[in-house]
């Protein structure tokens, strides 16, 4: 018996999980697919490492996995894997950019284990799914012993690897309105290689237009370049009400890059990221408009 080995609990209900997590607030770590937690456990004692006293395995709580749709709202259980989301016909129809984002995660092995809930709650600034969830105006449902509360995905994050979830709160599911068939969307990711790539940059875009081709709604979220995942409203506004032409798209893309610099300040990588974010955003907008410019 070793004092350094964590304990392990396998709750059968969300209530049990919440109760245990609340009692062991600072000492417990939720484990779902394990793809982040086991890496952090391995790194204990080093940067990015963790050494929790308890692991709370939520993988056996019924009802936490799967994609469903009900009157235009798509719900994804926290334990749904990237692979399941990437393949889900519901997602491919009602949120294809999320399917693309999930398909771009790591490798088949990671996609088979990593969950959407884990990807959100690990709160990595480079998480592939979050930009896509942000432009879908996704809400997340957190559960604790008192009940549930729903917050906007972008309100989950308070800093790199930090969330606003309270001790005892478990992410149950995420949900968003299915995109209308007329709605354009895109997820563009730039990695250093084709697989097993952490996003150097990414961008998710949703654009809705009226019959005249005028943009009625635009959502743009760059990934892996903001301190906290967010949409860039100032750029979205540059498109709304317009029939997008090259000038408008360029301006919106530039605004995303400028906003990034405003939010992060000038860093070692800014010389690269500023033009690259602009380019990735421009491509994502065009692709959402149905034009492949690559």
């Amino acid at each position: 018996m070793s004092p350094r080995k964590p304990g392990y609990v396998v709750p059968e209900t969300l209530a049990e999980a919440s109760e245990f997590l609340r009692e062991h607030a600072e000492d417990a770590r939720i484990i779902a697919g394990g793809t982040d937690v086991l890496v952090q456990l391995r790194r204990r004692g080093r940067a990015g490492g963790e050494h929790p006293r308890w692991l709370v395995d939520i993988s056996r709580i019924p009802g936490l996995a799967g994609v469903s749709t009900d009157s235009g709202t798509i719900s994804i259980g926290a334990m749904t894997t990237h692979e399941e989301i990437a393949r889900s016909p519901i997602i491919r129809k009602g949120g294809p950019l999320l399917a693309e984002a999930c398909a771009s995660v790591g490798s088949p092995q990671i996609r088979a284990r990593g969950t959407i809930g884990g990807n959100i709650m690990n709160a990595s600034p480079a998480a592939d799914t979050i930009a896509a969830l942000a432009v879908l105006s996704t809400r997340v449902r957190l559960s604790d012993r008192m009940g549930t509360r729903d917050i906007l995905i972008t309100d989950v994050f308070v800093g790199p690897y930090k969330t606003s979830a309270q001790p005892g709160e478990v992410l149950m599911e995420v949900y968003f309105d299915a995109l209308a068939p007329t709605c354009g969307s895109a997820f563009v990711k730039l990695g250093r290689r084709e697989a097993l790539a952490i996003a150097r940059l990414s961008c998710a875009v949703v654009i809705e237009r009226d019959d005249a081709g005028r943009v009625t709604r635009a959502a743009i979220a760059p990934g892996a370049c903001l301190p906290m995942p967010a949409r860039v409203e100032s750029a979205e506004e540059m498109l709304v009400g317009k029939v997008p032409d090259e000038a408008a798209v360029d301006a919106a893309a530039r605004e995303v890059a400028e906003e990034m610099v405003r939010r992060t300040g000038v860093r070692w990588s800014t010389d690269y990221k500023r033009p690259a974010v602009e380019a990735i955003t421009r491509r994502a907008i065009w692709r959402a408009l149905g034009v492949n410019v690559e």
Binding site: I31, G34, L38, G106, S107, P108, Q109, I110, A112, R113
Partner: peptide, 27 residues
């Protein structure tokens, strides 16, 4: 590698390929 990057530890879990270095035994 121990961090799910190299895939040398790939096994099938209920038919799906997984990195066995990232699967807690208890699961």
């Amino acid at each position: 590698c121990g961090v799910g990057e190299c895939g040398a530890c790939t096994v099938l879990l209920d038919g799906k390929p997984v990195n066995s270095c990232l699967v807690p035994a208890l699961q």
